[in-house]
Simulated scan of single mutants.
Amino acid sequence: MKSNHEIDFIIHGDDMQFVEIELDPAETVIAEAGSLMMMDDGIHMEAIFGDGSGQQSSGLMGKLMNAGKRILTGESLFMTAFTNEGSGKRKASFAAPYPGKIIPVDLHAAGGKMICQKDAFLAAAKGVSVGIEFQRKIGTGFFGGEGFIMQKLEGDGLAFMHAGGTIIRKDLNPGEKLRVDTGCLVAFTPNVNYSIEMVKGVKTFLFGGEGLFFATLEGPGTVYIQSLPFSRLASRVFAAAPRGFGTGGKDEGSAAGSIFNMLKGD
């Protein structure tokens, strides 16, 4: 028997997606702070402390430990729970923070666990635990960027992840290997053997335009890959912005005007 709340959903949009979740009376969905787009009247919104699983047996120290782990992934100490306190069905919608796709995952079908990038989690049915997953080789993890600290979603309900650009799902056969740029790796099932490797040859790093590390994943299992990591998009935007943009040296109106003129070709 499933311990998580069972929720229905619809994903709207193409490249700027949001997920609309339908809640029966007393059903709850948890989400990252700031991801709410809209909700029907009759839904109660409450900040929760910890990993979002709603388990009370861990006590205060357990909740403090779980909340502290979330700080390591760059997330807020708190998550938000949305509960339908009405007598009929109610809907709540959650929007992705940047262009890309929303990926629904049935954790029960995935073996009760999904490992994903630290900023990939968007929302989930109540009962799903959002924790952290450490790379086994600490040394390569520290220098491998996204490879060191990842999130883990545990439970038997629905969870929603978000990633940038186009998303591809790869189902790996036993022994089949796939090498992925660490930033392009979104998520994988726990039976996938995962490691970080250094790119051999200094010339590859200096002249190839790629990072020093990539992720090697070995099947069996399922892997999700994104074509446009947000870090890559942000670095290109920052590099193309006029000098002084966003630094406070100029007023924001003049900086925005410079970008507008640049786009017009003036």
Rank of each mutant, 00 (worst) to 15 (best):
I115A: 08
V105S: 02
A120C: 11
A120I: 02
G131T: 15
V130N: 10
S129R: 12
K101Y: 02
G111P: 03
I132L: 15
P104E: 11
E133P: 02
R136F: 04
V105G: 05
E133V: 00
F143G: 14
F134E: 05
C116I: 11
A120N: 07
G127E: 08
K118V: 04
F134D: 05
D119N: 14
K137G: 02
L107R: 13
I138S: 01
V128L: 04
V128K: 06
G112R: 08
I102D: 11
K113S: 13
A110E: 12
F143Y: 01
K137I: 11
M114D: 03
E133K: 08
I102F: 12
P104H: 12
P104L: 10
V128C: 09
A123L: 03
I115T: 11
G131M: 04
Q135H: 15
A125C: 12
F121I: 06
G111M: 08
F143S: 03
Q135E: 06
A109G: 05
S129L: 05
D119H: 09
F142S: 06
E133Y: 04
G139Q: 08
F143N: 04
R136V: 07
F121Q: 00
A123W: 07
A109K: 14
G127P: 10
I138H: 00
G144D: 06
M114W: 04
K126F: 05
A125D: 10
G127N: 05
K101P: 10
A110L: 07
L107C: 07
R136K: 12
V128A: 06
H108R: 14
K137H: 11
K137S: 14
L122I: 13
V105I: 15
Q135K: 01
G144E: 01
A109N: 06
Q135M: 14
G141H: 05
I115S: 02
G145Y: 00
K118H: 11
T140D: 13
G145P: 00
G139N: 06
F143T: 13
P104K: 08
I103H: 14
G127R: 00
M114V: 15
S129D: 09
R136W: 02
I115M: 09
F143Q: 00
I102W: 13
A124T: 07
K101I: 02
L122E: 12
A123E: 08
D106E: 08
V105L: 07
I103L: 13
L107F: 09
H108L: 09
F142N: 00
A123N: 05
A109S: 13
A123F: 02
K126N: 13
F134Y: 11
S129G: 09
G139D: 09
V105Q: 11
G131D: 14
G112N: 09
L107I: 07
F134W: 13
L122Y: 01
K137L: 07
G144K: 03
